[in-house]
Amino acid sequence: MEALQKSAREALENHKAKVIIGYSEGSGGRMRPIFVQSPAEAEKLTWNDRCTQNLAVYIAKPEVQKLGKPALVAPLPVLRAVLQLASENQIKEGDLLVLALSDGRVTELSQFSEMEEFVAKTPTHLASKDQEAIERLEKMTPQERWQYWQSELTRCFKCYACRAACPMCYCSRCTVECNQPQWIPVPAHPLGNWEWHLMRAMHLAGRCVSCGACGDACPLDIPIHLLTMKVEADIHREFGSQAGMKVQSEHALSSFKVQDKENFII
């Protein structure tokens, strides 16, 4: 904790960043994002297992951008989100600084190449509870899986907390907000919910950094992160690419190769 606060203080004092976006203790045992703009405030920064929000989500927020160059407190998923955003041309080299966290150490990273090296050395496996949940879903028959998602997705009331918490959901106008034509039904009826969540899972295919922030954000505890994590794992297995590992990565669903398997086309 002290190492993190020290790095943050130094980044502000040395004018490497104007704002540190990090985690602080919130209310009722919850963690809260904090925007530290003065060295004295750095003592509020903390880091623990309850920090599940992906802070990279704030990079695109206009009010946050106005604060000046940010330094992100970055556990692995935040770092991967930064690299994925870079690969999608949403941020440029030098736009931000990262205070990468691993094993209680803090590493200041400013170059994308440094971030790539850091990520390459860090294991990217899923949390065991998510891995187990995905395996449970894989073992189900298609009917059982249909039933499972039917009961989960029917509960959704479309508050879009999943989208709001996702650093890769940065579209200035989401498909659900396009109404000429209306692609996805707006109301939170079962069809509208299915179309929304399946569309989101497909749009995140090959782009999801598997942080789980969408599922954590859901006020109704719908494990929506399992959909995008499963698709991401499939893409990794089938195409060998993994989101948020490299800046110059080929996106599995938007790059064509002549040797691509086409046996799925009927």
């Binding site: 927020k61 479309k158 989208r163 006020p219």
Partner: peptide
């Protein structure tokens, strides 16, 4: 408002509960 809403993600969770 500007200062305090920095963290707000812009979802409807608060309104829907």
């Amino acid at each position: 408002w500007l200062r305090t809403a920095l963290a707000c993600l812009g979802c409807g969770a608060c309104a829907y509960v």
